[in-house]
Amino acid sequence: MTNERRVHLSRSAPPAYQALSAFSKTVGGISAEAGIDDRLKELVQIHTSQLNGCAYCVRVHVERAEKAGVTLDTIAQLPVWRDSGVFTERERAGLELAEAFAFIAEDGISDDVYDRVGGILSEQEYVALSWILVSINAFNRIAIAGRYAVPPRDDLAGEDRDAAAGRAW
């Protein structure tokens, strides 16, 4: 798929993208205060991006997850997390919440999911993860709408390199 005829939203309206980037940094602070570690934060963002079909954001968050010490085996288990033994109870709660947010138009956050996840995570952790999921869903939509390119891993250039290093968002 080519993106030559697509508007690149972050370049076309820098103030809006900068505001979203600032929002994302605020969310990062909230998640750190709530005790959400980088492993959990990256796992839910990778899984959300997979569910939304955002190859660009999958790339960015796999890079960040690896830097946070998440193994490729663990990342490979994300699509089958319910049947995998590599995730903690907190991570399973986060992944279930990620799915609810990705498909929020279908059922919202059902009482079952809310109660199950809320029985594992503190209110502060639930709030922080929810804001992380709001943020990644927004970034997914920007990248998908613009068909942001995903070059080979050894060819990260410009914005891809910045995003992978955490500078772009």
Rank of each mutant, 00 (worst) to 15 (best):
V62N: 00
A98W: 02
F103N: 15
E89H: 08
A93Q: 06
D107Q: 14
S49R: 02
I132F: 04
A102Y: 07
F101M: 15
G118K: 04
L97G: 07
A55W: 02
V80I: 12
L97S: 06
A98I: 10
Q50V: 14
A93E: 07
L133N: 09
E125K: 04
W81Q: 03
S122N: 02
E91F: 09
D107I: 11
W131A: 13
V86P: 00
V113M: 09
R59I: 06
L51D: 04
R59A: 15
V58W: 02
E66S: 07
N140F: 10
D83Q: 13
A105W: 11
G69L: 10
E96Q: 12
G85R: 01
Y126C: 08
E123H: 00
V117A: 12
I132H: 09
V117S: 11
A102M: 11
V113E: 06
A93K: 04
P79A: 10
D107S: 15
P79V: 09
S122A: 06
G69Q: 06
L78P: 06
G118N: 06
R92A: 12
N52I: 06
Q124C: 02
A76C: 01
R116T: 11
V62R: 00
R90M: 11
D112L: 14
I75V: 15
N52A: 13
T71Q: 01
D115L: 09
N140V: 10
I75Y: 05
V60C: 10
V80W: 01
Y114L: 14
C57L: 13
A105C: 13
I46L: 06
T71C: 02
W81T: 06
T71P: 01
I104Q: 13
Q50A: 13
S130G: 15
E123L: 02
I75Q: 04
F101W: 12
S49K: 04
D107P: 02
S110W: 08
L97K: 02
V62Y: 00
L129C: 15
P79Y: 03
L129W: 01
E99C: 08
E106G: 07
R82S: 08
G119V: 04
W131I: 05
R90E: 14
L95W: 04
R116A: 14
D107A: 15
T74P: 00
I75W: 03
G108I: 13
D112Y: 05
T71Y: 00
I136E: 12
E123T: 07
Q45C: 15
